[in-house]
């Protein structure tokens, strides 16, 4: 997505890029379907742009609160067999994943 396209427009290529960014291996048929549906949705949601929000602060929480913190006290962790019980694959007490491509760690 090199340059933002006008609001309300969502091309098939952009949907493909967004799908990749969200790790969704969408099929070609889905791309066509989503591009159409999302363009319509985007058209509808773009109405937020109509609001006059100059000097309006964003709301992130319904009831404003600050400085919610907990004391620094260590508590027991889960037993390891429980931790690994749900793992799709495990090896040597760790979660096993396929080879990682990308940046060298």
């Amino acid at each position: 997505m090199s340059t933002p396209s006008p609001k309300g427009q969502l091309t098939r290529d952009e949907v493909a890029h967004l799908a990749h960014l969200s790790r969704l291996a969408v099929s070609d048929e889905e791309l066509d379907l989503f591009a159409g549906q999302l363009a319509a949705v985007l058209d509808a949601v773009a109405q937020v742009g109509k609001a006059d929000v100059a000097d309006v602060p964003p709301t992130t929480h319904a009831v404003p609160m600050t400085n919610v913190m907990r004391a620094d006290v260590a508590r027991p962790s889960l037993p390891r067999d429980v931790v690994l019980a749900g793992a799709p694959a495990a090896e040597d007490d760790r979660f096993r994943v396929p080879r990682i491509l990308g940046e060298e760690a």
Partner: peptide, 22 residues
């Protein structure tokens, strides 16, 4: 921490798979 398994150097390149410790 990721531990890379199966490569000659313990590096990510050439590794067969990786193991994660949280």
């Amino acid at each position: 921490k990721n531990l890379h398994v199966g490569g000659s150097t313990g590096r990510i390149h050439g590794a067969d798979h990786s193991l994660v410790d949280y």
